[in-house]
């Protein structure tokens, strides 16, 4: 009986320690997962946008102000390598970056069904170069931030 009491006591202490350790690990895990998801969202958004932007031909909006000061917006319009007008914009309700294709012709604009990135809290495109070929992209997802610069290599 004494041994059983001691073993139950020990099990309770050990169980308590393990449960406490598990709950702490769960909290850490949740924080790490959240941070990792944020980084992942930022990486994915930057990679997809810079990939298309790099091969594009000119940035239509935003462009530097008339006094040559920089201009930022959560929307960017550019002409892609096929001459179509592409727009990336931030949907604050769904926290998504969406892509809209506006044909440089008579056809109607269409928003892609699949967004460029999800879980994005903020995005800003800043026109830097006077030739409308250089743009900075700032993306924030949860507590993760990303800053990318893209130079358009096609004329």
């Amino acid at each position: 009986m004494v041994e059983l009491t001691i073993s139950i006591g020990l099990l309770a202490i050990l169980g308590g320690m393990v449960t406490h350790w598990f709950s702490m690990q769960r909290k850490y895990q949740a924080r790490i997962t959240q941070s990792s998801e944020g980084q992942q969202n930022v990486l994915m958004a930057n990679w997809k946008m810079s990939n298309e932007l790099r091969m594009s031909r000119s940035i239509l909006y935003p462009r530097p102000n008339s006094d040559k000061s920089i201009k930022s917006d959560s929307i960017i319009y550019f002409k892609n390598s096929c001459g179509e007008i592409i727009c990336y914009y931030h949907d604050k309700n769904t926290l998504e970056i969406k892509r809209c294709v506006i044909p440089n012709g008579v056809a109607a604009p269409a928003v892609d069904k699949k967004p460029i990135a999800q879980g994005i809290n903020e995005v800003f495109f800043t026109a830097v170069g006077v030739e409308n070929r250089l743009v900075d992209i700032y993306v924030r997802s949860l507590e993760s931030y990303g800053l990318e610069s893209v130079y358009l290599i096609n004329d």
């Binding site: 239509l60 929307i75 506006i102 008579v106 604009p109």
Partner: peptide, 28 residues
């Protein structure tokens, strides 16, 4: 005119900046 007419079929978020984009398109 053709490009400006597209404003009505654009998502709501884009309609305010579209006239600036059309001006840039026309100038180029």
């Amino acid at each position: 005119n053709i490009m400006s007419d597209k404003k009505s079929s654009l998502p709501e978020e884009l309609s305010s900046s579209w006239s600036t984009v059309v001006n840039a398109l026309v100038s180029e």
